[in-house]
Structures are given as C-alpha cells and as structure tokens.
C-alpha cells in the first residue's frame, strides 16, 4: 500500500526518530511511504488556543497537501483528533463547498499510526523485539476522541521480550493540553506530578504513548527529577528489532 506520512510539525522538529521509526515499521511490512515536504501542521495549536481565524489557512494547507493521498498515517492522536473533530466545522463555517467536499473526502483516509496498523492493515505483530519493562500512557485524544481502546496494548503484547507494566489512573490527563501547559503552568504541573508518580510506581524503564506531546511533558518532569525513566513513542518500540536494542 502507498502510505502518505504526515509527520506533524512538532515531531518533524523535535522527534525525528519517531518519524524514522514509523517509516521503518511500515516499510518492513512491505508498504511504500510518501513524504510530501510541503506539509506543515494540522492547525491544532491555533485552533485550541482560540486563534480560530488564523487556523483556517493552516487547515486548508493540510487539506490541499494531502488531497491526493490514498492513506494518511499520523503518529499523533491529537492531530488526528483535530482533523476529525474540528476540520468539518472549520470547512462548514467557511461556506466554501469545495473545502467542505475536500474535508469530507479526506477524513476516511486519515489514520493514527497504531490505528492504521491494527484496523486498516490488520497487523498486530510487527516483528519487534524490545527487552524492557514498558508502561503505556493513554493520551486523552487517543482515549476519548479516537477511542483506540486496547489497540496499542494489542501491538505491545506482540513485541518480543517486552514486559508490560500496568499504569494506575490510565484515564487521567497528564496535564499537557498544548498551550495549557504554559498558560496554566501551575495546575498543569500539579496534574503532571500525579501522572509521573503513577508512571514511576509501575517500575517501568520506558513510558510509551501514541503522542509525543504527552511524552515530552512527562519526560520534562522525569528528567528534572533526575529519574532514569525514559520515554519513547510506540512507533520506536515497534521499530526496534535486535535483542538489546533500544
């Protein structure tokens, strides 16, 4: 299958290893990856912060960049949620019938990375080996907007040598919330403290998720506290092959 990768703006700049891992996993499964370098951002930061008017050209840019893509893979559930939950409204409000039609046609082709593997490609075992204790953090958008349910767990359970550690308070927000982490830094960090305590209590070496935004937030505190815990996007675990690899 031809799969177009939307790396997302923050993964492009901050987490290129996640994108490389997505490419490795999908190519290993025999798929061809396209990367359109005109791509930028889904518009979520502007939209969710209330810069609704400013978000519209970004949304239009996304829609035109991926107009011809067959299947779009996005390693970030919050960006997928932005597209599914808010693009139809942005298009509707524009009153532009072409924009509305483009968004309608686009939505069924948009997949979050783990969702693509399990729901679209029907794969749970991607041939990965990861000899570490891992805990999975369910991001709010993956849980309540995409309703990924046990999809990430099904993928993790097939990874050789991986020990899965249950995370208490799985449905609790980590406190990131985009610009919330800056605008309400005190409350955000209080939420984060609860989350890092739960992550720490699992005894895991690595905390994973389908959103690097939450992981960046979590790791920010874990590093500040000088804990040895690491974070890694699910794709990076699924890409890892050799015994002893990280």
């Amino acid at each position: 299958m031809r799969i177009s990768l939307f790396i997302t703006c923050y993964n492009d700049a901050l987490f290129p290893a996640t994108g490389q891992a997505v490419v490795r996993v999908l190519e290993r499964l025999g798929h061809t990856i396209d990367f359109n370098s005109a791509q930028t951002c889904c518009g979520q930061m502007h939209w969710n912060t209330g810069y609704l008017r400013e978000a519209v050209p970004i949304i239009r840019h996304f829609v035109s960049t991926f107009r011809d893509a067959e299947t779009i893979c996005i390693p970030s559930s919050s960006c997928v949620a932005m597209i599914r939950d808010h693009y139809p409204k942005a298009a509707r409000e524009s009153g532009d019938p072409d924009f509305i039609a483009d968004v309608d046609a686009l939505l069924p082709r948009v997949f979050e990375f783990s969702e693509l593997l399990v729901n679209r490609l029907g794969v749970e075992d991607v041939g990965a080996t990861f000899p570490h204790r891992v805990t999975y953090h369910a991001s709010c958008h993956s849980l309540r907007s995409l309703r990924l349910g046990d999809i990430p767990f099904r993928l993790l359970r097939q990874v050789r040598s991986l020990t899965l550690c249950d995370l208490e308070g799985l449905d609790q927000c980590c406190g990131f919330g985009g610009t919330f982490a800056i605008k309400n830094a005190d409350v955000s960090s209080a939420m984060l403290a609860d989350k890092t305590r739960c992550v720490f209590n699992t005894g895991a070496e690595v905390c994973t998720a389908v959103d690097n935004s939450c992981l960046m937030h979590l790791y920010g505190a874990l590093h500040r506290q000088r804990t040895p815990l690491r974070t890694a996007h699910l794709a990076e675990i699924l890409a890892s092959e050799a015994e002893g690899a990280s």
Partner: peptide
Amino acid sequence: FRDLAPLPAESFR
C-alpha cells in the same frame, strides 16, 4: 517545572 530537550541536529524532513 520541566526540562526540555533541544531541537535535534536534523529534522525529519
């Protein structure tokens, strides 16, 4: 409240 990893030397693109 949190540290931040800097932008790595090479972007994905």
